[in-house]
Design a protein around this nucleic acid. Structure first.
Lengths: 206, 206
DNA sequence: ACCTGAACACCGTTCAAGT
DNA sequence: ACCTGAACACCGTTCAAGT
């Protein structure tokens, strides 16, 4: 039997991602299976393969959506031109988002691409968009001709924050207390900013 | 049929970990299956469950072994008392180790504990041992009464380095060039050290 | 006591068959 | 054209049966 067409392709896409989001947030990425998602939306597993290439593709779109949500949240923060203030604002938004969607956030980084397949361009753009916010906040610390150093610094800070989250969330630092992630993130940003101001960049100048 | 006893329990443990190491290094953690390991050592899957609690337990022991190897490598580096020099030495050793064992290193962080199960104490100790080397290198920057700030700083730096590796290895930064990981790691350590020296720690003083 | 291998309850993915 | 559900080739884990 077949041919229900209760939903359009777009509706199926939205339904599936919504169900995936709920499963990941409730039980983690390892419970996200094709059969689970199909069950949740009342279709057979095979139907998912009409909408997504495979399960990896579904996860990629789920993660892309998470990046969109983060960008929307962070882009509402005002930019004052004072790096310490602006970075602090971004950091607060980042922390709030990630603590509010722990499952989705974990999935974003837990997911490993099959083989050595890189991430597609449309996905890389979503990352670049978030990094752009960091760059805007750090920009006053750099000269106009130092855009390379600026993007470099933004990436290092972004990666560093992710590292703290990853180790903390994975219990891979024998950490006591609940606000340690926040503390470490603050230490990283504050120390990194102080370092950017003082002497660490001489090598970058001409 | 049964009762071969070709190997002792200890020999089985070593054989299994060795096979696991080869599989992970060659094909990645996702190819590490009980049947794969069993095949490689010429036993049935069931036998593994005499030696390890389950596959998670096997991976945990594999990762513990990786941490041991890293500690052995890094602890041979001389400590001069000059933080910039010593951190640089450690960083070089870290980079060399990780580029020499990319599969094992990826497995160390890719592996996510089931449920919210924390890591056992004997494993945490292996992490602490590595962190201790970082602390020793950073120690001259801190006063004798600032051991809390010292361990905090060492953890932040360790986590930050991991973040850079994780994003780079996962292709999650649209990075060009081959030595970018090294560049970013150098930027992080240099900037972080400069920040520790200048002003960023006022809040930590009494 | 140790090991086997069949069995159970799952996977991702494909595809002939149906409407 | 779209969807199904059975099928294929896998999983982790258990455990009665054998020596």
């Amino acid at each position: 039997m077949a041919r229900r067409s209760d939903h359009s392709r777009e509706q199926l896409y939205t339904l599936a991602l919504g169900a995936a989001e709920r499963i990941v947030e409730a039980d983690g990425l390892h419970r996200l299976t094709a059969r689970n998602v199909a069950d949740a939306i009342g279709y057979s597993p095979g139907t998912l393969y009409n909408v997504f290439e495979n399960l990896d593709d579904l996860i990629l779109h789920l993660n892309a959506h998470t990046l969109d949500l983060l960008f929307e949240t962070l882009s509402q923060a005002p930019v004052t031109g004072a790096p310490d203030r602006d970075i602090d604002t971004l950091l607060d938004g980042y922390l709030e988002f990630l603590l509010g969607h722990p499952g989705l956030w974990a999935a974003l980084f837990e997911y490993v691409r099959p083989d050595g397949a890189g991430l597609p361009d449309w996905y890389q753009l979503k990352i670049a968009r978030v990094l752009g916010l960091l760059e805007a906040a750090l920009a006053p610390l750099f000269g106009k001709a130092e855009t390379d150093q600026l993007t470099h610094a933004a990436r290092v800070l972004w990666a560093g924050l992710h590292g703290i989250y990853a180790l903390e969330a994975g219990g891979k630092l024998d950490v006591v207390g609940n606000d340690t992630f926040r503390d470490m993130a603050k230490t990283l940003t504050r120390t990194f900013l102080a370092g950017l101001r003082h002497g660490a960049r001489e090598a970058g100048h001409e």
